[in-house]
């Protein structure tokens, strides 16, 4: 057995443990299968150089794969009741907003995009978890779903790449990026804070944006 297989085999217990948490929502064997794919992805993408333990990398990958699968399932219900429909719409909204915002959305954001109240979103989230769906959709063979790209997992890779890219910046560049893009300060505020000219802030912002873009194209 090579190390990859070994690592997968060693951590299958984790998959079973997580799958058990969701077993009221779907067929246990299906959950284990999907979770195992999350594990395999984690094994393939894990970079020990980043200093995290494997399990802290694998668990989000496994739970992410399972949740994604459950969300897909709820989105596939054809003629649902009122609440189930809200649940399915919420699932889709989460996926769409995650795409468009480039991060996971908040409950108010989900509520706003669907034109429903925050309480209704919470109800929908509960409904998504509560429904034990038996798929009668025979055409939807499990393999068809298993082969899909998991957008959440791809984002993990992007996040890691961004983190590495930011690590290569100079202290001044990083300060500008932090203040401009994470604290949301205006160019003039940043200039004042860092005691540099507004022109410099603008130049550094543009330079860093280009650098990051170049680095990320290679991902």
């Amino acid at each position: 057995m090579d190390t990859r297989e070994q690592q997968i085999a060693e951590h299958l217990g984790l998959v079973h443990h997580v799958a058990r948490r969701f077993r009221s929502h779907a067929d246990y064997d299906d959950l284990v299968q999907v979770g195992t794919l999350g594990l395999i992805r984690a094994v393939d993408n894990f970079d020990p150089a980043l200093g995290h333990s494997f399990s802290s990398y694998a668990v989000p990958s496994i739970t992410g794969a399972i949740r994604h699968y459950l969300r897909d399932q709820s989105a596939s219900i054809k003629v649902p009741g009122r609440l189930q429909e809200a649940a399915a719409r919420t699932s889709r909204a989460v996926d769409q907003l995650t795409q468009s915002l480039g991060r996971s959305p908040t409950v108010p954001e989900i509520a706003q995009s669907l034109g429903i109240s925050q309480d209704q979103v919470l109800e929908a989230i509960e409904a998504n978890h509560a429904q034990a769906i038996v798929s009668l959709d025979a055409e939807q063979a499990p393999t068809a779903q298993l082969g899909r790209t998991d957008s959440e997992l791809e984002q993990v890779e992007t996040r890691i790449a961004v983190r590495q890219a930011l690590a290569q910046l100079t202290a001044l560049e990083r300060a500008v990026v932090e203040q401009r893009f994470y604290r949301g300060l205006s160019q003039s505020q940043v200039a004042k804070d860092l005691q540099i000219s507004q022109m410099q802030v603008s130049r550094i912002s543009a330079r860093v944006a280009t650098q990051l873009r170049d680095l990320l194209i290679d991902v």
Binding site: R21, T63, R67, V94, T98, R103, S104, P105, T106, V107, P108, I110, Q118, V121, L122, I125, E126, H129, E152
Partner: peptide, 20 residues
């Protein structure tokens, strides 16, 4: 936990983490 996470304005992923 989910309702509290929403009150804190945690994002959907973190809300799900809190639930689990």
């Amino acid at each position: 936990a989910a309702a509290m996470a929403a009150r804190c304005n945690l994002n959907y992923d973190r809300l799900e983490d809190a639930r689990l």
